Amino acid sequence: MGFKLLSKLLVYLTASIMAIASPLAFSVDSSGEYPTVSEIPVGEVRLYQIADGVWSHIATQSFDGAVYPSNGLIVRDGDELLLIDTAWGAKNTAALLAEIEKQIGLPVTRAVSTHFHDDRVGGVDVLRAAGVATYASPSTRRLAEVEGNEIPTHSLEGLSSSGDAVRFGPVELFYPGAAHSTDNLIVYVPSASVLYGGCAIYELSRTSAGNVADADLAEWPTSIERIQQHYPEAQFVIPGHGLPGGLDLLKHTTNVVKAHTNRSVVE
């Protein structure tokens, strides 16, 4: 069995187990497998329904001669939608809004960016022009300005110390501490036991640490421990890039980060 097929099978099995364990909360999309990078042309966006009122959005972007996937989250909030992270750029984010209108038909009224990198804030200006209120932590807003990236308009308070959590509509926002970046936030959907790890969490097929220019490698494993301790009931975990899975993604990420750190020390 090929690795790609095995990865998709694991996603399907995880979703099936969740649907059985929580039949009222989960209505997993039966329309197909989780979209992969090879299936999404740059400039297009796919939506994948995880649970009743919960979707991931998947886009792709060219970077350094390669094409990478990027995940975000959409959560229903009454007759409105909360968006977590842009679709990595203005063109993708405009396509995301169009796809949401086509498939869901509810307005996106608020959006949260989970850290300051372009795959999370690139497209904020498109959201703002569409009347979406954009939010991020003060740290993310400051770092985005320093980096020359787009800056969300509103500040999220109460997320300055490791372990801080605040309720934001249908989700809980959690600051686990520094990891992929010093400002990275985690998003949890309690009604569906869905954990969105953003770039602080890796997919299972990833074996290298990737972009760690703004990471705190020493603190990252401790931050992941905080996530595990705060959300032990999480059933569906979405990484910032690639295929979702279960809580095993947290341990896998820790292993990859520690291996990278150990290699760096040896070198």
Results as ranks from 00 to 15, higher is better:
M1A: 03
F3Q: 05
F3H: 05
L5Q: 09
L6R: 06
L6E: 07
L6G: 07
L6S: 06
L6A: 07
L10W: 13
L10F: 05
V11I: 05
V11N: 11
Y12R: 13
L13S: 07
L13T: 14
L13H: 13
L13W: 09
L13Q: 06
A15T: 05
I17W: 05
M18H: 05
A19R: 06
P23A: 14
L24D: 10
A25D: 06
S27N: 05
S27L: 13
D29M: 13
D29S: 09
D29Q: 14
D29V: 09
S30D: 06
S31A: 13
G32A: 10
E33Y: 06
E33Q: 12
E33A: 13
Y34E: 12
Y34W: 07
Y34L: 09
T36C: 07
T36P: 06
T36G: 11
V37Y: 12
S38F: 15
S38A: 12
S38I: 09
S38W: 13
E39T: 07
E39C: 13
I40T: 10
I40K: 14
P41A: 09
P41L: 09
V42I: 13
V42R: 11
V42W: 14
G43C: 04
V45P: 15
V45Q: 04
V45L: 14
R46E: 07
L47P: 04
Y48W: 09
Q49M: 07
I50W: 14
I50M: 08
I50E: 03
D52G: 10
G53E: 14
W55Y: 07
W55G: 01
W55T: 02
S56M: 15
S56V: 12
I58M: 10
I58S: 11
A59P: 02
A59M: 04
T60C: 12
T60E: 06
Q61A: 12
Q61G: 11
Q61E: 07
S62M: 15
S62G: 10
S62R: 10
S62F: 06
F63H: 14
D64V: 12
G65D: 07
G65A: 11
A66M: 15
Y68A: 14
Y68T: 14
Y68M: 12
G72E: 02
L73D: 02
V75M: 05
R76W: 09
G78L: 12
G78W: 10
D79S: 13
E80S: 08
L81D: 00
L82P: 04
L82T: 11
L83F: 03
L83T: 05
L83E: 04
L83N: 00
I84P: 02
D85M: 00
D85G: 00
T86K: 02
W88H: 00
G89H: 02
K91M: 13
K91Q: 13
K91C: 09
N92K: 13
N92Q: 14
N92V: 02
N92T: 15
A94N: 12
A94Y: 11
A94T: 12
L96G: 02
A98K: 15
I100L: 09
I100W: 02
I100D: 02
E101K: 11
K102L: 14
K102F: 05
K102D: 12
Q103A: 07
I104V: 08
G105L: 15
G105S: 15
L106G: 11
R110I: 08
R110E: 08
R110H: 05
R110S: 07
A111G: 14
A111W: 04
V112N: 03
V112P: 03
V112K: 03
V112D: 04
V112A: 05
V112W: 03
S113E: 04
T114N: 00
H117C: 00
D119Q: 01
R120V: 03
R120H: 04
V121K: 01
V121T: 05
V121D: 01
G123T: 03
G123W: 03
V124I: 10
V124A: 08
D125V: 08
V126I: 11
V126M: 09
V126F: 12
A129F: 05
A129E: 08
A130D: 06
G131E: 07
G131C: 04
V132Q: 02
V132G: 01
A133R: 12
A133V: 11
A133S: 09
A133T: 14
T134R: 02
T134A: 07
T134D: 05
Y135R: 00
A136L: 03
A136C: 14
A136G: 12
P138K: 13
P138Q: 05
P138G: 14
T140A: 04
R141H: 05
R142V: 10
R142L: 12
R142C: 12
R142W: 12
R142G: 12
R142Q: 12
A144S: 12
V146C: 14
E147W: 12
I151A: 10
P152R: 02
T153K: 08
S155A: 13
S155H: 15
E157A: 14
L159F: 06
L159M: 12
L159Y: 04
L159W: 03
L159D: 02
S160E: 11
G163Q: 11
A165N: 15
V166I: 12
V166G: 05
R167L: 06
F168Q: 03
F168P: 03
G169A: 04
P170C: 04
V171M: 05
V171D: 02
L173R: 01
F174G: 01
Y175Q: 03
Y175W: 13
P176N: 00
A178L: 11
A178G: 10
A178F: 07
A179L: 02
A179H: 01
H180W: 00
S181H: 00
T182E: 12
N184K: 02
N184H: 00
L185R: 02
I186N: 03
I186M: 14
V187A: 09
Y188D: 01
V189E: 07
V189D: 03
V189H: 14
S191V: 07
S193V: 07
V194F: 00
L195G: 00
L195W: 00
Y196S: 01
G197A: 09
G198C: 04
C199Q: 00
I201G: 01
E203L: 02
L204Y: 14
S205W: 06
R206F: 06
R206M: 06
S208N: 15
A209N: 05
A209R: 09
A209Q: 10
G210V: 05
G210T: 05
N211F: 10
N211K: 07
V212G: 11
A213T: 09
D214P: 05
D214G: 10
D214I: 09
D214R: 09
D214K: 07
D214W: 09
A215R: 05
A215I: 05
E219G: 11
W220N: 00
S223Y: 02
S223C: 03
I224L: 14
E225D: 15
R226E: 11
R226M: 07
I227E: 02
Q228K: 15
Q229C: 04
H230M: 10
P232A: 09
P232Q: 07
E233C: 06
A234Q: 01
A234W: 02
A234R: 02
A234G: 08
Q235K: 05
F236P: 03
H241V: 00
L243Q: 10
L243N: 11
G245L: 01
G245K: 02
G245P: 02
L247K: 05
L247H: 08
L249E: 01
L249Q: 02
L250E: 02
K251R: 11
H252S: 08
T253Y: 01
V256R: 05
V256Y: 02
V256P: 00
K258Q: 12
K258S: 13
H260R: 08
H260G: 09
T261I: 06
R263N: 13
R263D: 07
R263L: 10
S264E: 09
S264C: 05
S264D: 14
S264W: 10
V265T: 15
E267M: 08
E267P: 14
